[in-house]
Simulated assay, not measured.
Amino acid sequence: MPNPAQPYEEADPDELPPAQPVHYAEQALLGALLLHPHRLETIGTLLPEHFGNHSHGALFSAIRTLPLPDLEVHAKEAGWLNAVLDAARPEAPGLTAPYLHTLINACPRPHHAATYARMIQSDHARRTLRMHAQRLAQTATDPTLPNPAATVLAEADTLTRFLEEAAGQFTPHPGSLPRTSLPPTPAPDTGEEVLDEERLLLATATAHPDDIATMRWLQADDFVLPLHGALFQCLTALTHRGDSLDPITVLWEAQHRGLLAKDVDPVDLMALVSTPVGSSEYWGERILQRALLTTAHSAALRIVAFTDDPANTPHQLITGSRRALADLTAIRARWHRATPKPPTAAPRAPRTPALSRAGPRPRVTTPTTTARATR
């Protein structure tokens, strides 16, 4: 059997992976067009790049480029077929005349050409969606980016635009949710630098309670350590009630929330919220940005899983991908509230760099708290 990747070469069938259904759809469509070139007008906006097989795309490009032959002449002579082969060979040098006849024989119903074209478009949409999702996942985990949040959100915008375009090409149908088993949520980064930033936010916010009222864009779920998220809830609760805020009152609130029952030492907990450094806003933005990147990575992995499942139709892929991006959309709104852009009509002075706002970051040593909380 011809190699699906290189249909013009002979190979041992036992050494080849099984061809995917779209391979036969591409063969059938090309066979229909080689046999009845005028059916090109019935297949819509199919493009050469929609083909998964490069040689098939080259043949389709040649078919689209050359003038259509006279039907009566084409039925008796192979001149147009030879012209198609000559036009396609610069892009696919290994194509042969016998393979063109293989394509013609592979088409069971030439009048189904439009249906074959839709199958090819559907598979192209799946591959393209997977490419966008993989790019989003890679961007969300790239530590070298100078502005990771903006870059990740730009990739998410590109993916969303593709979904909007694809939604207009494929008709919705009942049962549109994918039934794919979702991959496990990636484990968060709990390195010391990450934990230090969360500790510094808690300590700085405890020392400057007024900052908490302006940081409603930060939530407990944004913290990688559950204990830190619970302590942030303690701070926000005390502030909301108008109670005094200091390490002692935080400890008291933590006791009422059952945090001390988890073998957290009171002395260590008070030490954790007693070493303020720099700006609460800075540490909060760092925590929120990390949560945004984590959410983007998780959404991208879900979309990749959807595209890897051949049972999903294009509309299921679109619906599932939109749902996967919903959490990213929510945290994105909070990120924009945390880092608003200056008005275009009245631009303000550039913000002080985040690092200078934070000031020097000393090492916060709370080994007992960290060790016990991570158990």
Rank of each mutant, 00 (worst) to 15 (best):
L218Q: 02
A324H: 02
L328K: 02
R257E: 09
S298E: 06
S298T: 13
D327M: 02
A254E: 00
A338H: 03
A296W: 06
D221S: 13
R322F: 07
D327S: 02
D308L: 11
Y282T: 05
S279Y: 03
A324P: 03
I287Q: 02
L292H: 00
R302K: 15
R257N: 12
V273N: 09
D308R: 14
A326K: 15
A261Y: 01
G229E: 12
L235F: 07
L272H: 04
V273Q: 10
S279G: 01
L288R: 15
A345G: 11
D308E: 15
A261M: 06
Q219I: 04
G229Y: 07
Q233W: 06
E281L: 04
H297M: 09
W217G: 11
A346W: 07
D222E: 07
A311D: 13
V304C: 05
R286V: 07
T329G: 15
A220V: 03
A345P: 06
V277F: 04
T319L: 12
N312P: 10
E281I: 00
R337G: 01
L218W: 04
F232C: 01
V304W: 02
L328W: 00
T239D: 12
P266E: 12
A311P: 03
A326L: 13
T239N: 14
Q233N: 14
Y282I: 05
A261N: 06
H297W: 12
D268S: 15
A230T: 03
R332A: 09
A237W: 09
A330F: 04
P343A: 14
T344S: 14
H336Y: 09
L260I: 07
P247W: 08
P343E: 11
A230L: 08
D263C: 12
W252Y: 12
I287P: 01
V277E: 06
E253D: 13
R302C: 13
H297Q: 13
H336V: 04
G242K: 06
D308K: 08
F223I: 11
A230S: 14
D265C: 13
P314V: 01
T249L: 10
P276V: 05
R334F: 02
R334Q: 04
T329D: 14
I318F: 02
L293S: 09
R323S: 03
T307V: 12
H315N: 05
S274I: 06
R334W: 07
S279N: 00
Q233G: 12
T294G: 06
A333W: 05
R290E: 00
T344P: 09
G284W: 00
G284D: 04
Q233K: 14
T329K: 13
I331C: 01
L225D: 10
L293E: 06
T275N: 13
S274L: 11
L225E: 12
G258F: 03
T239I: 05
T236H: 09
D309A: 05
P347A: 11
R241G: 08
L238E: 06
S321H: 04
A311Y: 08
P342L: 10
S298L: 03
L231P: 04
A345Y: 08
L293T: 09
P247M: 12
L288Q: 13
A338Q: 02
P340V: 10
E253H: 13
D243A: 15
H240S: 13
A346K: 07
R290Q: 03
F306L: 08
V224F: 01
T295Q: 10
V250T: 07
A333I: 06
L251H: 10
W252C: 12
D327Q: 01
L328F: 00
L218D: 01
L293A: 10
